[in-house]
């Protein structure tokens, strides 16, 4: 016959396991989706104003756009750090891997770009940023595919690889892509955010049934 200590111990095992195995995917999905959509909105916003404004208004809006982008980029990095810290605290290995990969894209790639371009070229080189972002995204998607065993990440890794090559080709030809890397990153964020939210949605539906 089961005694109270055994019952308490088993209930604790159940609660701890449920806590550990729940995904943080919904929050990750929301963060990525909002980040991607805001990033795209900023570009469209700048483009629209570039077409319809006088040079003085354009200068004001373009400065606001840059400031907004900086605020957004740092917000996403802080959010990333908070979510990563939470997954470490919960010993959730799967989510930790996911966040580490995204940390590579959100923090390491832009920092590398700034350092490399300033050291080697003395100025910002957009190609280098684009190449680094796509390369980091490709590596990250590949490892996410391996960790989560989902085909979609391999497809995204392949696309990132193609875009990296495209950027290198454009760079060699001396052509200027309009911040292809940042645009691509925002689109990737929207796609990944959608996938994460859909996975969470499926989970919720199954629970409700």
């Amino acid at each position: 016959m089961m005694n109270i200590e055994e019952a308490q111990e088993n209930l604790r095992i159940v609660n701890d396991t449920i806590k550990k195995s729940k995904y943080n995917l919904f929050y990750l999905g929301v963060v990525l989706l909002v980040y991607g959509l805001l990033g795209e909105a900023c570009y469209l916003f700048n483009l629209l104003f570039a077409l319809h404004c006088t040079s003085e208004t354009l200068a004001v809006w373009s400065t606001s756009g840059v400031v907004l982008r900086q605020v957004m980029d740092w917000t996403i990095r802080i959010l990333w750090f908070m979510l990563f810290y939470q997954s470490v605290k919960r010993e959730d290995k799967g989510t930790q891997k996911l966040f580490l990969m995204w940390g590579l894209v959100l923090i390491v790639a832009p920092l590398l770009y700034v350092s490399f371009s300033l050291i080697f070229f003395g100025t910002d080189i957009s190609y280098l940023r684009d190449i680094l972002i796509f390369l980091a995204s490709g590596i990250c998607f590949f490892y996410m595919g391996k960790a989560l065993e989902r085909k979609i990440y391999y497809i995204l890794a392949f696309l990132s690889g193609l875009l990296t090559i495209l950027c290198i080709v454009l760079w060699c030809m001396g052509d200027s892509p309009i911040s292809l890397g940042m645009q691509g990153m925002y689109v990737f964020c929207i796609v990944l955010g959608g996938i994460c939210m859909k996975m969470k949605w499926n989970l919720k539906n199954r629970k409700d049934q």
Partner: peptide, 8 residues
């Protein structure tokens, strides 16, 4: 307990 939160 793990499977109650979804397929694994």
């Amino acid at each position: 307990s793990m499977l109650i939160t979804g397929d694994k």
